[in-house]
Structures are given as C-alpha cells and as structure tokens.
Design a protein around this nucleic acid. Sequence first.
DNA 1: CATGAATGAGATTTCATTCAT
DNA 2: GATGAATGAAATCTCATTCAT
Lengths: 193, 193, 193, 193
Amino acid sequence: MGKPQTRRKDTRERILDVALELFLEHGYDQTSLREIAERLDVTKAALYYHFRTKEDILDALVGSIGEPVDELIAWGRAQPPTLDTRRELLRRLNEALEKGAPVFQFLQENQAALRGRTSPETFRNRMRDLAALMTDPEASVLDQIRSVSALFTVYFGTFAVASIDGTLEEKRVALLQVAREQIDAAHAACTSP
Amino acid sequence: MGKPQTRRKDTRERILDVALELFLEHGYDQTSLREIAERLDVTKAALYYHFRTKEDILDALVGSIGEPVDELIAWGRAQPPTLDTRRELLRRLNEALEKGAPVFQFLQENQAALRGRTSPETFRNRMRDLAALMTDPEASVLDQIRSVSALFTVYFGTFAVASIDGTLEEKRVALLQVAREQIDAAHAACTSP
Amino acid sequence: MGKPQTRRKDTRERILDVALELFLEHGYDQTSLREIAERLDVTKAALYYHFRTKEDILDALVGSIGEPVDELIAWGRAQPPTLDTRRELLRRLNEALEKGAPVFQFLQENQAALRGRTSPETFRNRMRDLAALMTDPEASVLDQIRSVSALFTVYFGTFAVASIDGTLEEKRVALLQVAREQIDAAHAACTSP
Amino acid sequence: MGKPQTRRKDTRERILDVALELFLEHGYDQTSLREIAERLDVTKAALYYHFRTKEDILDALVGSIGEPVDELIAWGRAQPPTLDTRRELLRRLNEALEKGAPVFQFLQENQAALRGRTSPETFRNRMRDLAALMTDPEASVLDQIRSVSALFTVYFGTFAVASIDGTLEEKRVALLQVAREQIDAAHAACTSP
DNA sequence: CATGAATGAGATTTCATTCAT
DNA sequence: GATGAATGAAATCTCATTCAT
C-alpha cells in the first residue's frame, strides 16, 4: 500500500543533499560528478537525467536560499528606513541564515570558483541590496561602515563562532545582539551629536 | 657589474604576480598553468623550472603574507592581554592588510578550493591564533563575539568597502575606528558592571 | 467504425517524417533519438515502442525507396539491353527520384556515416545493378563512362540544380534530356564507326 | 648525424594521414580521437598538442585542397569565358582531383556530417564558384545543365569509376574526354542553331 | 501506447606534470 | 633558463538502450 515505493526518497532531492555536502567538503570545482554519483550509488548519467549540467545543480542549490532573501529585501523596501526596520532586518537575516546556513557557507567559501556564474552573481546582488537597505547614502563614512559591520557580524559570524564555547542558540542570540549594538551606534552617532 | 641582467624584473617574481592576478580573476582551481604561461608569454615547462608544482606557487604566495602575520602574533604574545594591546593588534593588522590585500582576498575567496592544502591551513591557524589573542576565554559569549567582530570589521571590511564612497585611506581609517569601538565595548562591558 | 482513430496521422509515420527531416538537417550520426523525440513531443521511450533500434528507423526509410528501385531493376533485366531500354531506365529513374528525393539525398550525403550498415549497402548494390544495366561490359572505357555519366546526370543533378533558375519541372525534363544525349552518344560511338 | 632524429616522421603530418584514412573508413563522426591515437600509437592528449580540437584536424585536411582550387578559380576568373577556358578548367580540375582525391572523396561522402562546419562550407562555396565559371547565366537551362554535367563527370566520376575495368590513367583521360564532349555540346547548341 | 528513471559505454577535452634537448 | 613533445588521469557530458509501471 501507500505510494508504489518512490524508492530511496526522491532522487533529485538526494542529489542536491549530497552535492552540497561534497561542495562543502572539497569545494565546487574539486567536487566531480563522479564523486557525487558514487556517494549516491547511482551512475553519473543518472545525475544528468535530473540536472542538465553541473551548473544546474549549483543553481538549484543557490535558488533554494534566493527566495527567502528576496522576500526579506521586498519587506525591507516596503518599510521606512528607520532604526527599527534595520534591527528587524538583522533579526530576520539572522533567522534565515539558521536554516540555509550550509548553502550560505558554501557561497561564502567558493566565491572565486563561482565568479561569473549567473546564480551566485544574482545572489551577490541581493546581498548588495540588503547592504543598501542597512545604510543611508548620505551618512558619514564612519556610520556606513558601522552599518555594514553589523551585517557582517550576523553574516560571517554565523560561520565563525564555531571556535567559541556555548550552545548554537546562545551564540546566535549573542551575534544578533552585537549586530544590534552596531546598528544602534550608527544611528546614535548620526542623530545625537 | 651588479646582477647579470635581471631582464624584465625576474621571471619568478613575474610568475607570482600573474598567478595571483589570475587566481583572483578566476579562482585557484579554474586557473590553469597554461593560462599563467600564456599571459607571461613563456611555456608551461618554464614555470616548472621555477616552481616544482602548482601548489608551490600557492605556497610562495601565501608565504609572502605569512611572515608579517607571524610577527604580529609573536608581538601580541609578548604583550599583556590588555585593551591597549588589542587596539594595537587591530592597528597593525589593518596596516598589514593594506599591503598584501590581494593575497588576503585570494585566501578569503578560495577557502573551499584551498581546504586541505597545508599552507593556507597554516594561515588559517594563524588567524585563529590572532582571534585568540583578541579574546579572553573566560569573558562572556557576548564579549567574545564583540572581540571577534572587531577582527571581522578590519578583515572583511577591507574587501567590502568598495561600494562605499570615499578615498581608500579615509575608509581604512574609518574601519579601524569602528573596530576599535567594538573592542572597547568588549572591554567596557566586562570591567564595568 | 473505420480505424479506431489514427490520431494525428499515425505515430510511426510521424517518426519517420521527423527522423528524415532531422537526418537531412544534421546528418544521421549527429541526430540523436532525443532530438527526434523532442521535435515530436514524445519521449525517447516512445520511439522504442515503434522501432527496435535507431538503425531500424534507418532501414524503414531506406526500404521505402528500395522497392521502386527493385522494380526498376527487375524491369530492366527483363528487357533486351538496347538503347531504348536504357532511355526508359533513365526516364523511370528520373521519375522515381522525384518522389523519394529526400531519401535519395539523405543517402547521398551520408554515405560515410552509413557505410557498413546493411540497408544502405543493399541500396548501393541496387545502384550498382542499375549501372550495370546501363553499360555493356565489352564497350570501350569511353562508352562505359558515357553511360555512367548519364546516370550521374539524372542522379546527382537532381540535388544540384537548385542553383540554376527555372521551375522544378522544367529542370527535371532538362536533366533527363541531357542524360539521354549522353546515353545516345555512348551507343552512337559503339555502333557507327 | 643529420637531424637529431625527428622520431617517426613528423607527428602532425602522421596525424593528418591517419585521420583521413579513418575518416574515409568510418566517416567523420564515427571516427573517435581514441581510434586515431591508437592507430598512431600515441595518446589522445598528444593529438591535442598538435590540434586544438577535432574540427581543427578537419580544417587542416580541407585546407590542404583549398589552395589548389582557389588558384584554379582565380585563374578562371582572369580568363575570358570561352569554350577553351572551360575546357582548360576541366583539365586542371581533373588534374587537381588526382592528387587530393582522398580528401575530395571524404568531403563528398560526409556532406551531412560536415554541414555547418565552416571549412567544408567554404569548400562548397568554391565549388559553386567553379560551377559559375562553367556556365553562362543567360544560356538555356539545357545548356547550363550540360555544363554542370561536365563538371559532375569529372568530379563524381573520379570516385565512381572504380567499378570499371582499365588503368587509373586510362580512366582519368576518358573522364576528361567525356566531360569535354559535354561542355562542347553546351557551346555548340548555343552558337549554331 | 507511452513514460520516468536509470544505465553502460564512450566521446571530446583539459590538466598538471615530465623529460630530452 | 627555457622549450617542444608527450603522457596519464580525470572531468563533463551525450547517447542508444532497457524496463517496470
């Protein structure tokens, strides 16, 4: 009974899982389709049944995180460019990074390898948009850097806190708070003096 | 008299220059020795006269920034772990990044590709040592993240401020100041309450 | 009543049409079953319901012109080897080429690709038989060449007159007349002196 | 003494020889670089040292006959469009075909496989130019076909006379004479009536 | 009748590397 | 110091074909 058998989960899904796994282990260029196929115990040709090229696998992976970020940007643009909006942007980004973290890390560690590829390029543009939403173009260089720095703390911090003791959740919350302090500083400086 | 002739700078040096140039353009894996040789207008075999393997070129490149960082770490260890020491560490790192920036960027963008390679691994360890010098292991998670965040600001900021208006020098100084605020915050929090 | 429905002509027929179309466009080897299936908007597996192999498609195509030529040869053999017989052979071949022209052209342009395949080989034998019917083995080399040349004019001419102005029908008639002059010359030479 | 050793003739030359040999045996598409390499007893990679792609081998082959034909066309254009010129064109083509015959045959048998490839396309244009030199555009369709037919006799005849008895030289001369009769007929018809 | 999923074999091409000269 | 010729290994990708459903 039930579905006939959909043997071994869904192959397409499994390919993406294993691909990401290997891309993180050895990098995109160093991961051959042979390796992916072997770890899945299918033939290389089977991969080509599900994806037209190696780059299509990449696109599917990057696409999976593109949507949440797009939504985030759309939301940000609909809000007034206030401190509260920016705090909320950081909070939502921090959340989005939690799920999707492996893909974010993959993108971050393979920047050079993926240069010129359309889908990561698209992703990079999204991050640029996000950065633009965090900063006021007329603010001082100092404040702009404070804002970008807040984004960095959330973004890179996620991959770098491994060496610090503490639970993942604890560190995630701490990252967010530090980032919030920085965005607060950017705003305080520009309103108070 | 003097050196025999050192025609055109010195081939070894030129190989390193062009290699770095191409590694930055297409990434380490995607850059073939053929491309390097072609851009230099020599044969591939000529490269092998100067470097035993492709990885040797990588090592020479990474080595060129290893020394300054090693010195920085040695200096840091010889100092007491005070706020002033950390401020000075940030300042010196900021300085070291200026020269050597392309190599740092190369390392940052090719993390996955270089994983498992000895010399970048060595470099990563050095950065870990540096991070350790910036933080007190007994400090709160929050303060540790503040300290690491200061390091990030100096480090990643260097590659990311391209999209902000202002002279390079201006931005470098601003980055340093923001980082200093963060390390100050880390210390203020842990000494005051 | 009548045939159940013969939806859209008949799949088998459509496969042959599209296959020939593509074989003419890109050549036999360069045409994959995937392309044929895609242009028909069915799956590759569907092709295998109608034909056991790719070569079976080829055989069906070549077979379609084999019969008329077989009949022509049989007719030729039943006649005395006179000038009139040969004139009539040219006329009938010229006629047969009109229908079936695409298949003839396909065979002519893919000789190398089809070498060793049984059915085109069979076809080539038929053409050889036809050439034999056109020539007397004891005639002079010159006259044999005149006769073969007449065959060529009808055969290759059909594909080559595209660059000459005039209606198709006009050109077909002209080709036949030129060929007839050649066969006449072959006979005149051998009977008169 | 003598040249150091130029071991085994000139590799590039040998590749072209063997490639043509195999292209004629199995056709262009069906001949893999593996086969070429094996018959030469070198590795596939060695082929790529001498030719950038498989198509480059093709180009070199076609190019080798392009020049003589170009010269023939240039010569033809410099002459008045008389019967004598055309007789001489046929004679020279007949001569050019003798050397270079295998390449001509290869081109003729692989038309479909080579469609769209630049260098055979170029070659086809040359043949069209040659055909244009043989015919008067204002002549009757009949005479135009007679002229083209003369060209065919020389061209296709070269590959087709294998089945006729006689020495190669004898047959070559006979082909030329038959072609000449046809071009004569084309001119006679248009001047006399 | 036809499809979705998969395979085994093999194609072209590229790469780091070697070595005699 | 440098080159020309070559190699062995591997990569991406395509193809004809099969078979359970």
